[in-house]
Design a protein around this nucleic acid. Structure first.
Length: 124
RNA sequence: UCAGAGGGCCGGGCGGCCGCUUGUCGGCAUUUCGGUGCGGGCGAGAGGAAAGUCCGGGCUCCAGCAAAGCAGGAUGCCAGUUAAUGGCUGGCCGGGCGGUUUCGUCCGAGGGACAGUGCCACAGAGAGAAGACUACCGGGCUUGCCCGGAAAAGCUGAAAGGGUGCGGUAAGAGCGCACCGGGGGCGGAGUAAUUCGUCCCGUCACGGUAAACCCCAUCCGGAGCAAGACCAAAUAGGGACGACGUUUGCCGCGCUUUGUCGGUGUCGUUCGGGUCGGUCGCUAGAGGCGGCGCGCGAGCGCCGUCCCAGAUGAAUGGCCGCCACUGUGAUUAACCAUAUCGCAGCACAGAACCCGGCUUACAGGCCCUCUGACACU
RNA sequence: GGCCUCGUAGCUCAACUGGAUAGAGCAGCUGACUUCUAAUCAGCAGGUUGGGGGUUCAAGUCCUCCCGGGGUCG
């Protein structure tokens, strides 16, 4: 079973096209602290894929890139453990994302992923 | 030592854990021998502005190309520099500031207003080969008006048709003269812009505006790496090559004309293909560093040495510790200095084909030159 | 990344070839009318013309540099 988790980690995919982001936008949603996470089951594959969004509202190119790098590390650390196969995740940066304490940012993302909407517990 | 001005340079450092992109070299597994997958060693990995996209080039493509003309755009003192420029360097001229002249420093879109046209509101008599409102002078008479002279005074305006003085006159006027200014000729210096000297011109006839139209000189084909080339699943127009024709018509990257050329037509042979996706273009270059020589300088020449980002929802990082810098608080000291501890801050900002400039943003630090003040010798 | 285009009152638009107080409608405020409101009438306020610099006697207009918004691409 541990080997399966490792395989999933290696198979972590990324969203690259605008249509894929729009697809996930129609799914479940949870906002905690300095991060917003969207999730939707994708029957086209059985891997865990993620994408990152940082809008122009949170700052210039340097600030946006910093937010995306931090969220990328968040995704790689947490989705190996909490990501459900066959689902696409989108992490959206907020104004506080580039300056949030690292431990608190991790906790924000963990709470969002473990919420009812995203963990599948309370979802219909 | 401090303050101000100008110019140039740098723009955090070290370490630990976990990662990303790329180059290269082994290993393991698999294979239809083309490769594919996994893991590892070593090396490299944002900027002075990578930005704005304001100029200039390289490069690529565009059935056009060449010549002439038109249209459009840009530039504008002179010389140099450069691949090129509207950049840069040096000089000339003009202006500001400082200073007794010499000089220093800063700024300047700085061709042409005797090629032509337009505009100069309001005010004012008059705004351009001008004019008579008030005032002035002469004459006339109906005694407060008319005719004439005049460009000196007033008024208005951003600007009033050379300025000052003397003579002159009815009053005045370059009407005459002197000086200053302006224009032209000749000569000297300088590559030139320009400058100096001298002579002549009172027929000095004519303000401003060309970032108004315009004229003159010079330069410019257009588009841009989403250029462009190749691979490639499904459906359709199709593409290439050869032969004939190439008379007319039509099309050909701003427009017209001329010349030339290509295509549009028919037949035959043959091959496949826009978009999605992928590969190439993609980084060795007007390159960096060092030395020598030439030049006032921008810069140029020679030699040696080095290889120095190539991503594509877009890598070049995430987290932590220490140091450096700045500010602040507490403790130690009678005060200052010093030392220790704590807290906060540490700019502007992210390559997207490449390069040379310009412009804009920017915490802090270092160096050079000049000016001023204070202290010491 | 490249290439175009536009900024005037809170909103929608004017301002002729540069010419002097930058206008109009809606919205806002005050008053009148009405028992009250709406409508109507009268009046008022509201502008660094996106910002800086320059040309000119004079700039919303002309030139230049920034700021912000929008569109487009094989």
């Amino acid at each position: 079973m541990a080997a399966d988790v490792a395989d999933q980690n290696k198979a972590l995919g990324t969203l690259t096209k605008r249509s894929e982001f729009l697809f996930v936008r129609e799914g479940a949603y949870s906002a905690k602290g300095a991060v917003v996470i969207q999730c939707r089951a994708n029957p086209a594959h059985d891997r865990v894929r993620y994408g990152i969004t940082a809008t122009k509202r949170i700052g210039n190119a340097v600030t946006r890139n910093r937010a995306k790098r931090r969220l990328r590390v968040v995704a790689r650390t947490l989705l190996a453990e909490l990501g459900r196969p066959g689902h696409d995740y989108v992490l959206i940066a907020r104004d506080r994302t580039p300056v949030r304490d690292w431990s608190k940012l991790l906790e924000d993302a963990r709470r969002a992923l473990q919420s009812d909407a995203l963990s599948g517990q309370g979802a219909p």
